[in-house]
Design a protein around this nucleic acid. Structure first.
Lengths: 334, 334
DNA sequence: TTGAAAGCGCTAACAT
DNA sequence: ATGTTAGCGCTTTCAA
């Protein structure tokens, strides 16, 4: 392996000068610089990044922690992160927690061991105390999810409550009065916000909040399916369902079809997220499109500011999302 | 930051001993080991991985190169890779080529700069000469795709030809004689193999190979849609279609529906890959399920052998895939 | 504008 | 079983 000293020798300069040519070319005389550059080319010299990282105590690498990469929602955010990271020479390491506390802790250790310069969390389902602790010492950003204690981490997300309100209101305006909700796990801030948005919309339009219309899911297809089955078993089943995720909405639609209930003719069902297959699904899902790519980009850029030592407020940055009206919500009832 | 010498001092041993406790605990006397371990705990010492990497000239990191992480096929393989990697303390870095030659070259440079110990390719659409060159010097494994020159890289995949043959034959046995094929880009080995399997099945059953029944797609939904439109415009349209990917099959189904042609009643359509939504799709797609997780795992384990310096044959390892018969192929015509 | 030289923290060969 | 010691290749301070 060619090293810097080889280049230095052949170019008849010191290693310091070679290093300068690479780091701060403007501090080297044009002539010297050219000579060094020539030798670098000739020897096909590649600086040893390991040595550089060690010396600088930085890795130009960041860690993305998520429950599972199989979820298209996360891959989309990652694309945004990767896009921004690549622009400034950062690398992205994957951290699948697989919902396992131990694995998550192991991941966080990477930060402590300085194996990465910073970390982007795609989930807040982690040890809270640990999180508060490391967020003080290291660069960490949270995306899409929320922490119970606000102001601990910079957070990039959408206004879940507002969007949930909006899509529920859309159903109300279509003439629905019996609207159910299939929520995500209620230990997640995000799920509670979506639930609140749904409830607030009902209240603002003087509609009662039926306890029986509240189903708890876990964002999975199966939970949407099961919830819908329960809902249809009610004496007075709803005519519309607001699911907190597209997967659950799809599960709900499948359950309805299974029972011979047509969507949207007999029942309107809407989702949340706008994952790739929502528009292919039949009926195409009415849903809230999250700006995943932008969220990832923004998160990475905030993280870089943190890494660069800039003072960051632990603000919550809300990005705009969009209501996608497709087929599954149906049309005006009258 | 606590360093090894701090631990050594407090434990009244040399740094070498501390290092041994961490690397080869069995070579240290139990008593000494305990003492050192105590001090490590007390000082909350974390070894500086950057220094270690530098010293050892290894990173315990591997790079996965793929066109796009948004494709569920790739994420599934990555889960397998990650699973195996984590077991042995390896980290996985993402390399999105975004189909861009320059980005791909930049990624390959990571290897040369020793930023990663090895590389797993999820696509063979890269500079061939460059690939041959680096495969001699570095640890590289190819998954799912194939190289023109065999025996350049260890390759993990399925027998595309055989599987394509099998699914085509399934349609023949159902009574179809007019079977079309929507292929992937024919500059990919994988696409050609799937095409050959389809053709061979026809020939073996004395069915003619109609030139008009060959549509070239690019594995995308849209290309499947467009191809199907062309197929339906034929004077004598096929009664069955073998698509080289589920996405294209879905596109084809949508095109058929659009034209009022029912699947599978009027036309049978089958796919390839078994992506997540294939079973949710209506009709549920008959397809070939690739063992993505296993492929990723296997690739990582071969890569580790290479990294460990074991002599590796550049063999092609074919994993078993499974024919998933669902709704889109229909039943026996008679 | 350039060079000399001191490390960064760890590992491992060698010595004891 | 443990210690001594020489670097790994680079960056950067200080001096010239």
């Amino acid at each position: 392996m060619t090293k810097m000293s080889d280049v230095a020798k052949l170019a008849q300069v010191s290693t310091a000068t070679v290093s300068r040519v690479l780091q701060k070319p403007e501090t080297v005389k044009e002539e010297t610089k050219q000579k060094v550059l020539e030798v670098i080319k000739k020897l096909d010299y590649q600086p040893n990044i390991l040595a550089r990282n060690f010396r600088r105590l930085e890795t130009k690498t960041i860690l993305v922690v998520m429950p599972s990469i199989l979820n298209n929602v996360f891959s989309q955010i990652i694309v945004g992160i990767d896009y921004e990271a690549t622009k400034s020479g950062y690398q992205v390491i994957l951290g699948n927690t697989m919902q396992d506390e131990q694995r998550a802790l192991g991941l966080i250790n990477h930060l402590k061991q300085k194996q990465v310069d910073g970390m982007i969390l795609l989930t807040a389902r982690l040890d809270m105390n640990e999180l508060v602790k490391i967020s003080k010492e290291y660069s960490v950003v949270l995306v899409s999810d929320f922490l119970e204690n606000k102001n601990v981490l910079p957070t990039i997300a959408i206004d879940n409550m507002k969007e949930s309100y909006r899509i529920t209101e859309h159903l109300i305006k279509l003439g629905h009065t019996k609207i159910a909700h299939i929520s995500g796990p209620l230990d997640m801030s995000m799920s509670r916000d979506r639930l609140s948005g749904y409830q607030k919309a009902l209240m603002d339009h003087n509609l009662p909040i039926e306890y029986g219309y509240l189903e708890k899911g876990d964002y999975s297809f199966q939970s949407g399916y099961d919830s819908m089955l329960s809902l249809m078993d009610l004496k007075c089943p709803p005519t519309a369902v607001v699911a907190a995720s597209d997967r659950m909405a799809m599960g709900a639609v499948k359950a309805a079809k299974k029972k011979g209930v047509q969507v949207p003719n007999h029942i309107a069902i809407v989702g949340f997220d706008d994952i790739e297959f929502s528009k292919l699904f039949e009926p195409a899902l009415t849903t809230v499109a999250q700006p995943f790519f932008e969220m990832g980009k923004k998160a990475m850029s905030i993280l870089q500011q943190q890494i660069a030592g800039e003072q960051i407020n632990n603000d919550i940055i809300l990005l705009k999302s969009e209501l996608k009206i497709r087929e599954s919500c149906g049309f005006n009832l009258k």
